[in-house]
Design a protein around this nucleic acid. Structure first.
Lengths: 219, 219
DNA sequence: CTAGTAAGTTAGATTAAACTAACAAAATAT
DNA sequence: ATATTTTGTTAGTTTAATCTAACTTACTAG
C-alpha cells in the first residue's frame, strides 16, 4: 500500500525526472516544500519498497515499478482535470488544486467511469498527455524539434536522452522547459536550425541538440 | 483546521446522536472499528477544539459548532452520492465507498458546482436529506408519527427529543431505527395509534410517544 | 446490596511524517 | 589547490493517530 504522502513524493520525482531521468533530494525538497532530511528518509523508505533507486550522494531515479505507480497517479490527476473542465464547466486554471486531492482517491471504477464519459481522452486541458491504464504515456503529441518545419511555434516539453553537458548547454542558452520557440530557418547542409525565444532573436541549435528536444507544436 | 480523521469522528458522532442526542465512547469505537482509548483521547481533543461536549463518564454530545461541521461533511457525502448516481451513472449501491473519500475534499467550489449541476437536491439517492450549505438539515421528508394517517407505511428515522426512559420503552417494544411500521388505526379520543411491524401485529403507541418519533413515509 | 460484567480512563508504546541541529561529501569559485 | 558554499546525511525531537495493559467507574443481575 502506498500512502497519500508517498504518492506525492513519487509524483514529484516523476515530474522532475521526466526531463533528465534523475533528480536530487534538493529538487524534491524545493518542489514539495519539505525539508531535505525528510525527503532523504522518504527516499530510503521508497527504496525499501522497490519504487526508487537510492544510493548515498547519488542522483535519485524511479524504478520501473515506481515509474508505473507515478504515471498512474498522474493519469488520475489529468483525467480529473479533464473531467472538471469538460463535464463540470470549470475553467482550466481552477482545476489543479481540486485534482491534487482527487488524484488520491482509491477507486478504479471511479476513474474508469470518468475515462469512459470523456471518451478516452489522451491529453488533459493543458495539453499534457494522459498515461493509459498501464501507466504508459503515449506522448503522440510531443515531437522532436528536428522534425519541425520553418514557421512552427513550439513549446519545449522534455529532453530525451539527456546528459549533464546537454543540460548545462541548455542552461547557458536560457532554454528551459516551457520555453516557446519560433523556428526561423533550417540549414539543409547540417540540419541546424535558427530559432527565437524570450528576448533572443536568432539562436542556432545543432541537429545534435534538436534531436534531443521534445516539443509540443503550438502552430 | 479539522483533519480527515477528526472529520470521521464527527460524522460518526453526528449519526449516532441523531437518534437520541448523545452517544457513548463504546458506540463510536464499534462504528469506526477503533479501540476505546483512542476514541477517548480523540473526544478530549475535539472537546478542546470546541466541537464536542466531553465530561468523564458522561455521554458525548456535539456542540452547536460540532453539529454544523458534521452536517457539512454529511452534505458533501450525500451530494457526492447523488452526483455519482445522477451524473456518472453509478448504481445506488456502488457510491458509498467513493463518497466516503470525496467527502473530505477541501474545495467549496467543487461541491457548489455539484449542487448546481444537480439542481439543488434535498435528498440523496437513498432518500436521506442533504443538509444545506449552513449545515441545516431540512428534513421535510421526515414527519412525526402523530401526523400520519391510517394505512401509511413508514420507516422510523429518528427520535426527537429523546430520553433514556423513552429509549428503554422503545427497546422493550423492539422498536429501533429503521423499523418499518404500518398504521392500522388511530384512536380519536387520545390520538393513540395501533401499528404493526416485524412480527408484532397490533402494538398501541400513545401520542406522547408518537409525537417524538420521526418517520419517513414509504406509502 | 453486593458481586460480576461492561464501559470508560490512564499510562505508556508504536508508527508515519514532519522538524532542527550538527556533521560529511561534493561542487564551485577564487 | 584550497576555501567556501551547496547538497546530502545522521541523529534525535515532535505531533497525530493508533495500539495494549492495567486500573476505575458505572451498570446489572442475582
Amino acid at each position: 500500500m502506498i500512502s497519500q504522502t508517498e504518492e506525492n513524493y513519487l509524483k514529484a520525482l516523476y515530474n522532475l525526472t521526466y526531463l533528465k531521468g534523475e533528480a536530487s533530494v534538493n529538487e524534491i525538497s524545493k518542489r514539495l516544500e519539505i525539508k531535505m532530511p525528510t525527503v532523504n528518509s522518504m527516499m530510503k523508505k521508497l527504496s525499501e519498497k522497490g519504487l526508487v533507486h537510492y544510493e548515498s550522494y547519488k542522483p535519485l531515479k524511479l524504478t520501473e515499478e515506481g515509474k508505473k505507480e507515478a504515471a498512474l497517479i498522474i493519469r488520475k490527476h489529468r483525467l480529473t482535470e479533464m473531467y472538471l473542465v469538460e463535464k463540470m464547466g470549470f475553467a482550466w486554471d481552477e482545476v489543479h488544486q481540486i485534482a491534487e486531492q482527487i488524484e488520491h482517491i482509491h477507486s478504479p471504477e471511479f476513474f474508469t467511469k470518468m475515462d469512459q464519459l470523456l471518451g478516452y481522452p489522451t491529453v488533459d486541458p493543458h495539453g499534457s498527455p494522459i498515461p493509459d491504464h498501464n501507466g504508459v504515456m503515449r506522448s503522440e503529441n510531443y515531437v522532436f524539434l528536428d522534425t519541425c518545419e520553418i514557421g512552427n511555434v513550439v513549446t519545449l516539453m522534455a529532453v530525451q536522452p539527456s546528459s549533464k553537458e546537454l543540460l548545462q548547454y541548455l542552461n547557458s542558452k536560457n532554454l528551459e522547459l516551457g520555453t516557446t520557440l519560433t523556428i526561423h530557418s533550417i540549414e539543409p547542409f547540417d540540419r541546424s536550425i535558427t530559432v527565437s525565444y524570450d528576448k533572443r532573436s536568432a539562436e542556432v541549435l545543432s541537429s545534435k541538440v534538436t534531436a534531443t528536444l521534445l516539443v509540443r507544436p503550438i502552430s
